[in-house]
Every structure is written in C-alpha cells, then in structure tokens.
Design a protein around this nucleic acid. Sequence first.
RNA 1: GGGCCUGUAGCUCAGCUAGGUAGAGCAUCUGACUUUUAAUCAGGUGGUCAAGGGUUCGAAUCCCUUCAGGCCCGCCA
Length: 514
Amino acid sequence: MHWADVIAEDIAKNCEEPLIATGISPTGIIHVGSLREAITGESVRSAVKGLGKNVRLIYLIDSYDPLRKRYDFLPKEFEQYVGMPISNIPCPCGKHKNYAHHYVQPFLDAVDSLGVQCEIIWTHELYEQGLFAETIDMAMNKREQVIKILSEVTGKEENPNYAPYTPICSACGRFTQPIFETYEFPYIEYECTCGNRGKDDIREGKGKLTWRCEWPAKWKIFGTSAEPFGKDHAAAGGSYDTGVRIVKEIYDGVPPYPIPYEFVQLKGVGQMHKSLGSPVTGLDAINMTPPEVLNYLFLRVNPSRAIDYDSGMGVLDMADEYDRMERLFFEGEYTEAEEDSVRAYEIAQHNRTPEKLPNQISCRHLVNVAQMAPTFEGVLEILKRNGNISDMTPAETKRLARRVECVRYWLNGFAPDIVKFSVCNTVPPGIELSMAEKAFLQALSVRLYDCIWDAETIGATIADTAKESPVGLKGGYSTLYRILIGKKSGPRLGNFLADMDKSFVVNRVVQASN
RNA sequence: GGGCCUGUAGCUCAGCUAGGUAGAGCAUCUGACUUUUAAUCAGGUGGUCAAGGGUUCGAAUCCCUUCAGGCCCGCCA
C-alpha cells in the first residue's frame, strides 16, 4: 500500500473531519523542501478524501516571524528591519504588499501549479484577530511549567528568562523581551533595548508567541489532526516533542499525527553549476521539472527517505517514469512492484485524474524539438508535422507548454552537452571525412538541390542516397550530423533540414564534400 | 555527545510489521523495424541483498554487533 494511504487510514480512523496543517516561513528564498511539505500534506489530504472523509488542508504562512538577520540577498538598508515581523517590513522590490508577500509569492505560484488544494492563512492576521490571545494567556500564566517542559524534553538547563510571548515595541517595531512580573491579562509591560518602555495588549496582535509555544498553539486553535514537518523538528528533543507536551499540559489540546519527512538534496550536476560549485536552487527545480512530475517525484518514495534531486539526465528519467506510470494507470495492468508507483501517479493528480490517457509528448523528445524551434508555436508545428499530436485538449496543450518551458530552462543551465546541439555556421573544423562519405555528400548535394523542400522528400532523398552509397543509412545520417552540428547524432533530419534554408543546407553539403 | 534515515544489478529504487528458490525502470549488449535520434518493439547480460553473529526447517525480510554514507539537534523543510 502506498504510504499516503497508510497515513490516511490512520488519520481517518481517529477523526471525523480531519484537518491537515502545513506551512512555511517566508523569511527568504524558497527551496524544494518546502514543496515536499506542501505536496506531502496535499497527498495525505487527497488520500483521506478518497476514504470519504470531509478533510481540509490549511496552509499557514508564518508572516509574523521576525526577520532574523540581513541575509546576503537583501540590500544594506534592510539592516534596520532586523527583529521586526516580516509582514511589517516593506517589500524589497516594491511590487508586493510587504516582505512576507514578496518571498511567499513564487512559492504560492508553485503550490498552485502543483495542484495543491489548500486554504491560505496568514499568521499575522490570526494575531490581529486576537485568535492567539487565549493560548498566549495560558502560556504566560504557566510560564514556569513551560520552562520546565522545555528543559526536560531538550535536556538543557532551564532558562528563567525564556519568553513564551514577545511583544512588539511601539517605538522601534521590533519584538522585545517582556517584563514577566507585570503580566495581568490582557496587559504586559516591556522594556525594549531601544530604550522605550511600553504596555502591550495581547489581544491586539502586537506581539507573538515564540516558536516552541506558537506551534502547539496553532494545533490547539485549529484542532490540527495531522501535519507534515521536516526532520529538524522531528529530532528527539525537537519542537515536535516539546510541542506535544505543551499542547497537552499548557493548552489542554491534542497533538497532531506527525508526518516527518526527510530533506531534499539538490545536487548540481549540470556543468554550469558544477563549475561554480553552487547548488541547484529550489526555484531551479520548479522551473525545470514539470509540476506533475515534481509531484510524482515526492510521492514515489517514502517521506522518511532523503531525495537527491538529480538536475542532469535525472530530470528526463523522472519525467519518463511518470509517463510510464500514467500509461500503466490507464491500461490498468501492472505488476505488484509497480502498484505503489502507479498509485503515486494517481495521488499526484490530487483527485483530478484525467478521464483518459492524455497525449504524452516525452520531455526527452521535447529536448530535441525545443532546440529546433525557438517558440512554442514552432514546437507545436513540428509535433503536428511529425504526427505526434493531432487534437489537443486545452489541458493537454497547457501541459505541453509547461513541459517545453521546463525543457528550455533545463537546456539553458543544466543539461549535459550530449543532448545539446546547434547548427554550426561552417563545416565544423577537425571533421575528417572518408572518400566514401565525401562521395555520398556529393551525390546528395545534387539531389537535394533538385528536391522539393519538405520534410518527407528530404528524408526520402537522404535515405535513398545513403542506401545507394557504401556509407549506408546509418553512416549517411551520421555524416550529415557531423557536418551540420558537429555531432554523431541528432534530431530527425527530414524535419530538421526542412526548417533550415535550402541553399544553406545544400551549400554546406557541397562544402563538406570537397 | 544525542537523535533520525539510508546501505538490494552500473544508476534510481521496490520487496522488509503477512520470513519460503532475488524484482522493476533506466543504462549496457543483441536482434527487428528497407527514415535516422538517449525513437519503437523483442530478447539477453548483470546482485555472495554493506559485513559478522543469532533465532528458524528456511532470513534481503526478525534480533544483536560492527562498518560506511546522509542529515538533524540555533524559530532555516
């Protein structure tokens, strides 16, 4: 049984209306790991849904987290915002509402394109609505107990200054240390390092719970029944462990069913990144992996398994595997070993499985076509000419367009040289042709000069000429590839040459034959 | 130091909480297709299941030990 179904059964057993929570802290640039979390959550959601339960997936954006430091990618002036909640910091590019929106937007776009069906919730709005007031009050009243729990679970010494809640300074706008003795619902006083002294009303959302107390507070508020989270939180003594005790002993709530997942490693194998020694970014992965394939990538293995994202040929391998599973799914016949992978394909559709097998144009094939045609229209034209596509539904066209975009992105920065080609301006230097090959080219040049310039005729002409020559069919093709793109193989010659200017091709063949 | 995960064919992984003669895909090799491609189809090669010990009639599968790799333990998934 697929892991998502196993988890779904466990959840469905204990809850009537399960709520699955997931989230992100958009303090900086996103990475694919965050997508693994979203996809894991969505997969469990759709698996639970499949069991007939009324299930929700909420996506919490931690927009009230403080900016911890001025990251390298931020301009100098952002130094002044360190310590402030990111929803109160201006957008670095000026096009978004604030800092949080700026960094979470590409991520939300990705989540959307992946088909994740969730309700977006902004944490800073929860605070503004006073939804955390009750848990803040409980955490402040039982602060000593919280400190004890933290110490017991983490094995560290008790920290008497631990603040479950930090108010925002009314003068400088940064989170600051409260004066615990002054707490009396709903007010707490604070003295900020900027010199300002003030009084905070915990109901007004001018402060936030700190992480180890905030997470369990969310469980309590939403009644979370399951939640995926990274292995960092899952480590013994980590925030899940402390959260379990805090939600039970401080908030009188129930901890969610944990779905810990391993991290995703991005290894740059493309020469561009390899030479620089810099890794593939999460955005790269999104840009070069079709969404349906990325979904499948995370679903095919257990969450407990680390994933090495292979940005080289692995991208194509994965896409091919996806297509294969899609075929198996619609054929309905597969081995036991393939069962979970086929199910992974199905879950990757998030309950929006196509009715019939969609038109599959493999990414591997698109790699060639995309290099022949610079535009999507051009790609479509070539595919139509080859009979690869006929009637396309809008959904199929959309998927194809996305695949072409991904393939181009991949070719641009990650693809190994063997799959790339470009037409050389002259006969590539260093090419040595045998007498037979030259004779072949000579004969071919004459026939090409007279032939009608369409793919079929060109193809037939080449095949006929090559067969009559001692170089043979295979040798003939290889010779042409060598003089045109400097490689031993390449895309189908008929269409390839038909796309080029006739005199250019003929001239090249003549030149090479001398 | 503590914790988690992983180690099965060249590569990516299934199989392991139903213990019963080693699996898939890709790669590679061979053959076919009178138009080629990292295309399609058919077939083949390929593994003492990290190592050692234990339980068992029987272990990749359960238990113990060791080795190797990855990662987490600072509110970074």
